[in-house]
Design a protein around this nucleic acid. Structure first.
Length: 143
DNA sequence: GCCAACGTTGGC
DNA sequence: GCCAACGTTGGC
């Protein structure tokens, strides 16, 4: 299984809307690197959901429920979407600041490649972020 | 194939 | 609102 992180601007599509919808197709990706990541996603892969621009925090975990297909919002055959559904809302949002200040996480793509909107994340880093998101004492300890 | 100009993303 | 980082476009 692989692990990923996707970004969404919450005023465009928020975690709350995602929960309400129950699932969504991840459209609008117009960058080859991000597109290639979408194409590599397999059913069952876990995907962290990050709020960019406003919030700047990881808010939840989702899962790939359908592998890539043509982006229904464009005729352009270069672009694809995957279907995602929410799995878990993180009790403690994990902020960018927190991730940046963590020695173990400061080299992940979210920090290194700030403009990429769909990125791969190593299992150990995925697990760390989830741990921070679930456990308040861990949150305090790592500040 | 190089590179300048320009556009976009996203953090601050 | 600014700017750094990076991607894209187009002239040569």
């Amino acid at each position: 299984m692989n692990y990923w992180l996707v970004k969404s601007e919450p005023f465009k599509y928020s975690w709350e809307e995602f929960l309400r919808d129950g699932w969504t197709y991840w459209d609008g990706v117009r960058n080859y690197q991000a597109r290639n990541n979408l194409k590599s996603m397999k059913k069952g892969d876990r995907v962290l959901f990050y709020h960019s621009n406003k919030g700047l925090e990881v808010v939840g975990i989702s899962e790939v429920i359908r592998e890539y297909y043509q982006d229904p919002t464009t005729e352009d055959e270069r672009w694809v979407v995957v279907d995602l559904k929410p799995v878990e809302t993180l009790e403690n949002k994990v902020s960018l600041k927190q991730i940046k200040s963590d020695e173990r996480l400061k080299d992940i793509a979210l920090i290194r490649q700030s403009r990429l909107s769909v990125m791969k994340i190593e299992k150990k880093h995925f697990d760390m972020i989830v741990e921070l998101g679930r456990n308040a004492s861990e949150f305090v300890k790592n500040r």
